[in-house]
Write a protein that binds this DNA or RNA. Structure first.
Lengths: 150, 150
DNA sequence: GTCGCTGCAAAACGTTTGCATTTAG
DNA sequence: CTAAATGCAAACGTTTTGCAGCGAC
């Protein structure tokens, strides 16, 4: 397996060079926390983790840094019902969607080629040039079904 | 065609009776405006229309009334990227999704049985009991494609 | 006369911005 | 030295809430 975190660092650095942005210790802490994260983090999640390493970092810096990661294509912003923005690593060639438990919020990521094809056809049928999509399934996960039955 | 507005009124009345809620003139104005509406209305949209008939109505009442309509299954709340909640009539057996133009925000509603079947299979494959979904396709509509080319 | 509903204004919420200060290059 | 980045607090836009008075039943 390749070192994907190093690839993230390189891509970020390239973007920052291009835009004349600077590498500060706070920015490095936020991006490293994000790069080694899994799943879907809120700003709060990131901030809490960042403050373990550098307690002085403020909300604004985390917001600004995640905006930067979004701009250079390293982070995806998601909105799941509750009013909070969540961020996840944008792996290349991985455009998955989400299956979310309405009881415990467990998230399964899925990718379904057949659905993607149908989406493409549907857009074309309406004359649209498809650019992206948001697809979320809401249901009750196996564990919560058992909990209900028990 | 049946009088669907009368069906909405009846369903709302049944819910209000059940919960011991009262029928006020403001509430009637808001619900009537909503029942005869088309498409996806923001609170502001509804309020503006309501104030044509009754200029005194406040934001809070519209929020509270749409929450009520949501609770009794007559309204669906949607979130399309911009931070605004939008509401539409929840027609029975009509669980359509949206194809949204990223340039002009034009919205096409679609319903695709094949996709629904695949969603159902996918949920089952992960052991989930499917309850609902959110499916939005983002692209460029024919008009905006022409505008770009032209 | 209850108790739900209203309008208002204030609060809450997540997010963004202005600014004086710090710091990378 | 310049200009970008920071932390703070204040501003923002949307939504919710507390409350005194009003009105349905």
């Amino acid at each position: 397996m390749v070192d994907s975190i190093q690839m993230f660092r390189d891509k970020l650095q390239a973007y920052m060079d291009l835009k004349g942005l600077r590498s500060t210790s706070q920015r490095r802490t936020v991006t490293e926390v994000f790069f080694r994260s899994k799943g879907h983090l809120s700003i709060e999640d990131v901030l809490l983790e960042v403050r373990v390493e550098d307690p002085g970092v403020g909300y604004a810096t985390v917001y600004r840094t995640l905006k930067l990661l979004k701009e250079c294509g390293l982070a995806l912003e998601r909105h799941f019902g509750d009013g909070v923005s969540r961020y996840e690593i944008a792996h290349e060639n991985d455009h998955h969607d989400h299956l979310i438990c309405t009881d415990c919020n467990a998230i399964v990521e899925f990718e379904d080629e057949a659905i993607e094809v149908l989406q493409e056809q549907l857009a074309k049928r309406h004359g649209y040039l498809l650019r992206g999509h948001k697809h979320e399934l809401y249901g009750v996960c196996p564990a919560c079904q058992a909990k209900r039955a028990g």
